[in-house]
Amino acid sequence: MGKPAGVLLFGWIAAGPLGLGLPKGMRTIDLFVVGCVAAIGFTVSLFIASVAFEPGPVQDAAKMGALFSFFAAALSIAAGKLTRVQKQEN
């Protein structure tokens, strides 16, 4: 939950207090969904776990943690539905 919260918080800071704004049609709550999607990143994590740790329980735990990040996809879909994210037409 750290990445979605961080993307939302720092996106809000950049868009609001810093005055950088958001793209047309994007709401602040959409940043949470972007953060959920950004949390899906298990391929690099699997590679790093395999080269950083010796084969054994630590490497297995690291790989399982990376694979569990796949569930962020389900969280992203749920967050998109709950926040009513819609495709914007150009």
Rank of each mutant, 00 (worst) to 15 (best):
V85H: 03
W12Q: 09
P23C: 06
A74M: 11
M1C: 05
E89D: 13
V58K: 12
A49L: 07
V33A: 09
W12C: 12
I40R: 01
G16K: 08
M26H: 06
E54M: 13
G19P: 04
F68W: 08
P55I: 14
S69W: 02
A15H: 03
S50I: 01
S45K: 10
Q59E: 13
L31Q: 04
V33P: 00
S50A: 15
G65R: 10
G21C: 11
L8T: 06
P23K: 00
G35W: 07
F47I: 15
T43W: 07
G2R: 12
G11N: 07
T43V: 15
G56E: 06
A79F: 04
G25H: 10
P57D: 12
I77V: 15
F53Q: 03
Q86N: 07
G25E: 11
G41W: 08
P4S: 08
V85K: 05
A66S: 15
L67F: 11
A72M: 13
G25C: 12
S50D: 15
G19W: 03
L67S: 07
I48A: 10
P57H: 05
V34G: 05
F71D: 03
A72V: 04
K24S: 14
F47C: 11
Q59Y: 06
V85M: 07
I29S: 11
F32Q: 01
C36D: 04
A78N: 03
V51I: 15
V51K: 06
I40T: 08
A74P: 00
F53P: 01
R27F: 03
N90E: 14
A73F: 12
P4V: 08
A38N: 05
G56M: 07
W12T: 15
S69R: 01
I77M: 08
F47K: 09
M26K: 02
L8G: 03
L75F: 14
M26A: 13
A73P: 00
F10V: 14
A74S: 09
A49F: 03
A74C: 07
V7F: 04
A79D: 02
V51E: 10
P57S: 14
I48C: 01
V34Q: 01
R84W: 05
A79G: 05
A5L: 14
L9N: 00
Q86R: 14
I40E: 03
G6A: 15
A52D: 09
F47E: 10
V34H: 02
N90D: 13
P55C: 13
A52F: 11
L46W: 10
I29W: 03
V58W: 02
L31F: 11
A15Q: 03
P17H: 08
V85P: 00
D60I: 04
P17Q: 14
M64E: 09
A14M: 09
L82N: 06
G21Y: 04
A79L: 04
I77C: 07
V7K: 02
A73N: 01
I48P: 01
K3Q: 13
G11S: 06
I29C: 02
V7C: 05
D60N: 11
T83R: 10
A62S: 13
L20T: 04
I13S: 05
L22Y: 02
F10A: 09
K24H: 11
V51D: 06
I77F: 11
M26Y: 08
I13N: 00
I29G: 02
S76R: 00
A74N: 00
A79Q: 02
M26F: 09
L67C: 10
F10L: 14
V7W: 00
F32S: 05
G11Y: 00
A79M: 13
G21L: 10
V33M: 02
C36I: 00
